[in-house]
């Protein structure tokens, strides 16, 4: 029988397979140990693919368009990071770019790269390295926080100038949902079990 350790309290459990759509919880502290999610690989692959497509739209169209004094500016993810760098705030500029552009891109590409071949029972070359990178990147993917930032900014500027939502904003909201669904689609233990079975 395979065994599993609770990462929270270190209790050692036997790990029987659980029915689809349910989770096994730690006997001592109640934390979720592992889950069996329905159609996990298909879901993660599909949502990652959708997320990548949406990223294309997000980077192609502005989030907000602002007009003042006969001029017009546009907000995009790239400009939000780049203008800070241009103003001399290198560290924050790169940090913002990392959390809103690099991390989501790495996660979507990584999940697609690992999960698509697994659908056919194979492991892509270097899949283990990529899977490790996905879990390292996850805490730094902050698109949902950026979305809240857009809303706060909108309220802040609303009375100063003329503001308009762009296509990028709606694509970004959809991207947030797809990324969350892709990440929630597969259980870490299941992913690694499948990688182990598929071999490299």
């Amino acid at each position: 029988m395979q065994r599993v350790v609770c990462h929270f309290c270190d209790t050692l459990h036997e790990a029987p397979a659980v029915p689809e759509g349910t989770a096994a919880r730690c006997l001592r502290c109640g934390v979720v140990l592992y889950q069996n999610r329905p159609a996990s690989l298909v879901r993660t692959t599909a949502f990652s693919l959708a997320a990548l497509a949406l990223m294309g739209i997000v980077h192609g169209f502005p989030f907000l368009i602002m007009r003042a004094g006969g001029m017009q500016t546009e907000l995009s993810l790239y400009r939000a990071a780049h203008e800070l760098v241009k103003e001399g705030s290198l560290v924050i500029g790169w940090g913002v770019g990392l959390c809103t552009i690099v991390a989501p891109l790495m996660m979507a590409c990584g999940m697609l790269y690992v999960c698509t071949p697994l659908l056919f029972g194979r492991a892509a070359p270097g899949a283990r390295v990529v899977a490790r990178w996905i879990s390292l990147t996850e805490p730094w993917n902050m698109i949902e926080v950026f979305l809240l930032g857009v809303l706060v900014s909108l309220l802040k500027l609303g009375q100063l100038a003329d503001l308009e939502f762009g296509t990028g904003f709606w694509a970004f909201a959809a991207l947030m949902v797809c990324m969350a669904a892709a990440v929630a689609g597969i259980d870490r233990n299941e992913l690694w079990d499948r990688l182990e079975v598929a071999g490299e």
Partner: peptide
């Protein structure tokens, strides 16, 4: 992190 993003958004927009 939301306030950092607000700063980055305002800097990008209000030019």
């Amino acid at each position: 992190m939301v306030d950092i993003f607000v700063v980055s958004i305002l800097v990008a927009l209000v030019q």
